[in-house]
Amino acid sequence: MKNRIDEAFKKKPIFMPYFPLGYPDLATSIDVIEALATNGADLIEVGLSFSDPLADGPVIQQATQVALENGITVKKSLEAVKELRRRGVTIPLILMGYFNPMLAYGLEKFIRDAMDAGADGFIIPDLPMEEAEEFESALSGATQQGSEVEAQVAQNTRPSAALRFAHIVPMQFREDEYLPLIQMLAPTSSDERMESIARNAKGFIYLVSVTGVTGERREISNDLGALIARVREHTSAPVCVGFGISTPEQAAQVGQLADGVIVGSACVKAIGGSESPVQAAREFARSFADSLRR
């Protein structure tokens, strides 16, 4: 059985905005993400905040700082994901955050609660291939535990028990034992690294388009086509490009080369700086989705 991520890539290129939970406040951020989802986003990177986001530029630094000042936590973020599912958001939601808050929460518990909430995968910018094993093994630990629950549910014929467990894990994940840790590649990655990273890629590849932190850039690099071609030599997984894409025109340009376009800082800036963030989210999502579908 396919999961939500694979479903999303049936139409390409996909539009993948990033927005941090808790910014400018928790309730608004949930509304914003819902608005992005219902106005053309194909997959959303839901941001978990961290005090020291070393891969992020000023816009996301400032937004996540505000979220933290307003009391966002991992627990509240996961509850917010659950709320989004309750509201009927069906597109994939990938949790994007730094490693330490996940460690502090407890890796297996974090993964189980994320699955329970209805998340579809993880992006952890400070977890390169070299350090991914711990998370991967927690992932398989948590997923196996999920299967055990499923087995118990299956064995138990009483409908009440089935109902009691039904909310824990959406059925499709337990079949496939796969809530991916999305692998990142960068322009500096050697062919050797690309090969080992891409070989095990699940879900999609997050290709960082520029050497640098998140944030808008005036122009898309001329080398992007060649970079994407290098990645494709090593994998058949969808390749999504992020970092530095700030306008619908740039998105369309990248969309001709990649399977997905990730827009972070520009999204946070347009929505966070607006008087009516939800309206801004609708317009933002529509303009980018339209430019990709044209």
């Binding site: 070393l54 891969a55 490693f99 910018p125 400070d126 977890l127 390169p128 291939m129 070299e130 350090e131 990142m184 590649l185 960068a186 322009p187 500096t188 990655s189 050697s190 690294r193 080992s196 990273i197 960082v208 050497t211 640098g212």
Partner: peptide, 25 residues
């Protein structure tokens, strides 16, 4: 990938950085 020198001190240390920096390390 293996490192030329031990990259951990018992359970501590490691390389928790974005992929962009791994080749530089």
């Amino acid at each position: 990938m293996t490192t030329l020198l031990p990259h951990k001190f018992g359970p501590y240390g490691g390389q928790f950085v974005p992929e962009t920096l791994m080749p530089a390390l």
